[in-house]
Nucleic acid binder design. Sequence first.
DNA 1: CGGCATGTTTCGCC
DNA 2: AGGCGAAACATGCC
Length: 267
Amino acid sequence: MPEGLEAEIWRRAAQPLVGRTIVDGWADDRVAPDGLLDEIVGATVGAVRRIGKVLLLDLTVGSGSDDGRAVGLHFGMTGRLVVDGRAPIDRLVYASGRDDPVWDRFVLRTDPAGADGSTAALRMNDPRRLGHISIDADLTGRGVDLFDVTASDLATALVRRRIALKTALLDQHVIAGLGNLLVDEMLWHAGLDPRRPANTLSAEERARFAATLRRRLPIMLRRGGSTSGDLSPAIRGELPPCSRDGEPLRRDTIAARTTVWCPHHQR
DNA sequence: CGGCATGTTTCGCC
DNA sequence: AGGCGAAACATGCC
């Protein structure tokens, strides 16, 4: 589930952590840097940010001057976030429906604690363990954030790229935050063939795709995230006729990922 | 039991 | 050198 929309939902859910001090915690050393807890216990959460699919906790120490520490939560395919015992997204579509404590990878306790002091302030739970925790990760190469994409961003990023449009859009150096479901969804809405070489888009088509992101992402955010679109996981499985034109949907592998699209109106 | 899954990184081949 | 595709990672679920 974790694409840019889920990261944004979790960013909002984690805002209450701002101003709290980290007093204790635990990290699975298979997915976190050595000595992470020693680095961050005693620090205060100064801000919670998001870059693409990555959630960042900006930490401050002592007087509150910024010491540069930023803890990054990378959710992989099956990571979920629980803040003060509440999970804004409680069920992962392609993962487990359970919340087993053995899958906890990163846990923080804070002062003050949350409303229910008996639960951890922050908990990342990830059965498949494809996610990880970073500290001061270099994210400067990330492309423009999915909520801020303009036609000119696309022109710059897609020029001379002969790879399939879908492959380019999944590249976090092109746009940060789009994942497999969102790319299929946005291409369907924009009416663009995912197999097209990225550099063959016209200026009008780039503008159309940027406009589709601006229009559709806020709607899907309100509806609950990347699984709330017209090509929801149920539709990806059953492959009913395209709801726009009634023609058969197609399932292909593009960019080594399952791709659902409508050959009739996506060109 | 076999195959599949919302992601990212690494390897090897042009 | 750099672009690109495929494999690898880890594990629950249908």
